[in-house]
Nucleic acid binder design. Structure first.
Lengths: 347, 347
DNA sequence: CTGAAAGCGCTTACAG
DNA sequence: CTGAAAGCGCTTACAG
C-alpha cells in the first residue's frame, strides 16, 4: 500500500550523472563522447557509448538545446489538406528531415486566421527552421519568425516577404507549357479555372498560360474563379463555364484536384466526353491523376528535386551564418495522358 | 565591419531575468504569473502579464519542461499516407491537440522498418503521449514507450500489447452492417476484398462481415487479398475476382480507397456497371466517397467522436496517475449511396 | 585528454 | 504574497 504508484507515472530517466558515476568519469567526458568532433580519447568514447547503450542513456535533447541554442526541430506549417499533394509532400519531407536528425513539429491550420496563433506557439519551441507548406503567412506571423531569428522556407509558394526563402515549381513556365500543348493539339477556345486567387501558384500559372496563349496568337483565355483548390469547386466551375453558348474546347485547371472535379462536373452535368468534347489539363501530378478513371494530362511538379533543394537550403542555413533569402524555381514537366487529344479543324 | 553579423543568427531571446529586472521583481514571481493556480497578487500578475506582452516575453517551454517533466508535446506516428482518411484525421487531431496546448511532433514512416527508429527519436523528446495512427508498433518500439513511461494511444487500430490504449470504430459491427445491407438488397453471391492482412481493421471488418453472412444463411463469402489499402490494389483485385466464371453480385472492400480502385477496375477491365451488375460497399467514408463519380455506399467512421474520446483519454491520462489501458470502440453508420442497389431474383 | 565550475531559462520547495 | 536558493540535464570555456 505504498504511495509509489503515483510516482511511477513518469519513470526516472537515466542522466549524464548516472552514467558518469557508473563509469567513474566526469559528466563533461560523457557529454563529449556524443559529439564526433569533440576531443576525447577514442577508447574512452567507445566505453561511454557501449555502456550508454546498455543502460539506455541518450542525451536529453531538451536540456541540450538550452545550451546549444539548437533544438533540431523543424516547424512545419500546413493548410489545404484537401489537396492530396500535401500529404505526399509532408511524408517525404518528414522522412528526409529525420535523416539529418531534424524532428518535425507540425501545425495544421484549418482556417487561416488560426494560423497566426499556431505559428506563435510553434515558435515558442524555437524550431531551427520553419517550413510553410501551401500557405502564405500573415505579415505579423512572418515578423514573429524574423523576430525570433528563425529562417522561414516557403514550399510551393513564392514568399511575399523579402526575408524568406522559397522553393517552387516554375509555375509561369508550367502555365506556358499548357498553352503550348493545347494550341499544338489544335484547340482555339481556351479557358482557365482559377483556384485560390491569392495563391502565388494560381497567379503564376495563370500568367504563364495567358501569355502563352497570346504569344500563339489567341485571344486571352476565359478565366473562371473556382475560389479554392478543391474538388467541389472544380465541379461547380464546370457548371458555370460549360452552361453558356460558346463552350471552350480546352480547359486548364489551376491544379489537379480542381481538374478532377471539373471533369466530373463536365461529364455528369453536361454529358460531355473528355477528351472527345473538350481537353482538360491539370497541375501537380498527384497520384490520383494517374488513375485510369481520370488519366489526367498535367504538369508534373518536380517534388523530389524541390525537396532536395529544400534540404540543401537548410544545411546551408545551418552552416553559414548569413544567407541571402532567395527563391529556387524548378521546371515542371508536361505529362500527357488521356484527358487531352488532337482536334481537327474542318474549315 | 564588426563581427556582429555572425552573432545575429539567433537573436537573444528575452528571458525571465530580463523581465524580472525590468519590473524589479524576482524571477520566482515572474514565473508564478504564468500559472493560473499559483499564489500571487492579482495586481502583480496583471503587471507582469502586460509587461511581458510588451517586451515579447513568453516562458521557454523547453526550459520549463526540464523541471516540470511535462513537455506538452504529443508524438504522432503516421504511416499509410496513401489513404486520404489519415490526412483528414491528422489535421483535425492536430487542431484539437493545440486547443489543449499540446504540440504535435510528427513522425511519418514510409516503410514499417524505419518506424522503430522514428519512434525512438520521437521518444527522446519525451512526449507526454504518443498517438499511433494507422499502424501497429513493433513490440520493441512499444516496449521503448513503456520504458520511457509514455502512454500510447492507438487510433483506428486495436493495440496488440495490453499496455496501450485504443480508439477504434466498431469494425466487427461495421462489417456486419454491410452483410445486413447487401443481403437485404437481395445479393446472394458475396465477396470481400481484404487490405493489409495484419491490420486489426481488416481482420475485424472481415470477421463481422463473414459472420453476418453466415447468420443470414449464406455461405462464407469469397475473400480475395488485395494485400494493402491502396487504389491500385483494389483495381488489381477486381481483375482477379471478376475474371472467373461465377461473378459475385455484392462486394465489400475493406476500405474506401480499395473500393474506389475496385470499382474503376470493374468498370474499365470488364465493362461492368455499378450498381447494375454488382453492388460495392466500402468503409471509412472519406470525402472522395461522396464524389458523384464514386457515390460509394460505405460505413462511416465516427471520426469526430473518435477524436473526442482520444482527447478525453489524454486529459484523464494527465490528471490521474494510473489509468487502466482500455479500448474504446465506437459504432459506425452505414451510408447508402449509388454504388449499391436492390436486385430482383427472378426464380 | 580529462575534470571542476559556471550557466542555459526556467520552477519549486522553503523561509519570511 | 514575495524572494533567495537549489536544481532540472545538459554543454562549454578554462585549467591542468
Amino acid at each position: 500500500m505504498s504511495g509509489d504508484d503515483r510516482v511511477r507515472i513518469r519513470k526516472a530517466r537515466v542522466t549524464v550523472k548516472d552514467l558518469a558515476r557508473d563509469l567513474s568519469l566526469s559528466t563533461s567526458t560523457i557529454s563529449r563522447a556524443f559529439y564526433t568532433d569533440a576531443v576525447i580519447a577514442p577508447s574512452t568514447r567507445s566505453a561511454v557509448l557501449t555502456r550508454a547503450a546498455e543502460i539506455g542513456y541518450a542525451p536529453n535533447p531538451l536540456a541540450r538545446s538550452l545550451i546549444t541554442k539548437r533544438t533540431r526541430i523543424a516547424g512545419v506549417v500546413t493548410s489545404d489538406i484537401n489537396n492530396p499533394f500535401y500529404p505526399e509532400v509532408l511524408t517525404r519531407l518528414t522522412e528526409r528531415l529525420r535523416e539529418i536528425d531534424l524532428n518535425v513539429m507540425l501545425t495544421a491550420a484549418g482556417s487561416s486566421d488560426s494560423l497566426d496563433d499556431a505559428v506563435k506557439l510553434l515558435l515558442s519551441y524555437q524550431p531551427d527552421v520553419v517550413i510553410v507548406l501551401a500557405a502564405t503567412l500573415s505579415s505579423e506571423a512572418a515578423e514573429a519568425c524574423g523576430h525570433a531569428g528563425t529562417p522561414v522556407i516557403f514550399f510551393n509558394r513564392r514568399p511575399l516577404n523579402v526575408d524568406a526563402f522559397g522553393v517552387t515549381c516554375d509555375n509561369v513556365g508550367g502555365g506556358r507549357l499548357v498553352a503550348d500543348h493545347l494550341t499544338k493539339l489544335g484547340h482555339r477556345r481556351l479557358a482557365f479555372v482559377a483556384g485560390r486567387p491569392d495563391a502565388s501558384t494560381n497567379v503564376d500559372r495563370w500568367e504563364g498560360y495567358r501569355r502563352g496563349c497570346l504569344d500563339h496568337g489567341l485571344k486571352e483565355p476565359v478565366c473562371i474563379e473556382a475560389g479554392a483548390f478543391a474538388y467541389e469547386r472544380g465541379y461547380e466551375a464546370a457548371s458555370r463555364l460549360l452552361g453558356g453558348t460558346s463552350r471552350p474546347d480546352g480547359v486548364f485547371c489551376a491544379n489537379d484536384i480542381l481538374a478532377i472535379g471539373f471533369m466530373d462536373g463536365a461529364r455528369r452535368e453536361f454529358g460531355l466526353d473528355i477528351p472527345g468534347d473538350l481537353s482538360v489539363v491539370g497541375f501537380d501530378d498527384i497520384a490520383m491523376a494517374r488513375w485510369p478513371s481520370h488519366a489526367l494530362t498535367t504538369v508534373r511538379q518536380p517534388v523530389g528535386k524541390m525537396i532536395d533543394v529544400t534540404m540543401q537550403l537548410i544545411e546551408m542555413l545551418f552552416d553559414s551564418a548569413q544567407l541571402e533569402p532567395r527563391i529556387e524555381c524548378l521546371p515542371g514537366e508536361l505529362i500527357e495522358r488521356a484527358s487531352t487529344r488532337e482536334v481537327s479543324h474542318a474549315e
